[in-house]
Simulated scan of single mutants.
Amino acid sequence: MATFHLKVMTVDRCFYDDEVDQIVVRTTQGDVGILPHHVPYTAALGIGGLTIFQNGQSRVAAIAGGFVDVSGEQTVVLARTCEWADEIDINRAREAAERARAILQQKESDHEHDIAQVKLKKAINRMRIAGDK
């Protein structure tokens, strides 16, 4: 089976760097599947999942913000945040969601409201990816 090179970079580390069969990543326009020999493509990332398929196995990570760039040589994901499902601290994600909800209820400024909404979406995404209902 054909593969392609995937590199996932965050602000503080190289998150992933290997050959893969396929990925599915959340963009701002929805989920996009990337297979070997995909046409050149660039998109902004949303808040969601990154599923990596390799050797018949799949692994999921929570991802938020950044870009995906597909070229003939490789696919590069530059993400603001990215963490494997099994590395997510569920309690920390729940606490972040509660803090964001509290801010949303306080009727703060539009700017603070917008920030709290994004933080809530990220926390809910992390809980969902980790399998917490």
Rank of each mutant, 00 (worst) to 15 (best):
F53V: 11
D12V: 03
L6Y: 07
A44S: 14
G46V: 06
F53M: 09
F67M: 10
S58V: 07
I23Q: 00
A44W: 03
Y16K: 02
Q29L: 14
F67P: 01
Q57E: 13
V11A: 15
D31L: 12
T27A: 05
R13I: 10
V20M: 09
P36I: 02
V39F: 12
D31E: 15
I63P: 00
D18K: 14
T10G: 14
R13S: 14
V32Q: 08
L35A: 04
I34A: 09
V25F: 01
A64N: 03
A61W: 00
Q22T: 01
D31T: 11
G56P: 02
T51M: 15
R13P: 06
R59Q: 15
D17G: 08
F15G: 04
D21W: 00
K7N: 07
G56Y: 03
I23R: 00
T42M: 15
G48D: 02
S58E: 15
Q57L: 09
Y16V: 03
V68C: 01
L50S: 05
V68S: 02
D12C: 01
K7H: 06
Q54E: 09
T42D: 11
K7T: 13
V11W: 09
H5V: 06
G66D: 06
F67W: 10
V60A: 10
T27L: 03
R13F: 09
G65F: 04
C14Y: 07
A61K: 01
Q54H: 11
A61M: 03
D31F: 12
E19K: 13
K7L: 12
V25E: 00
T10W: 05
V60N: 11
L35N: 06
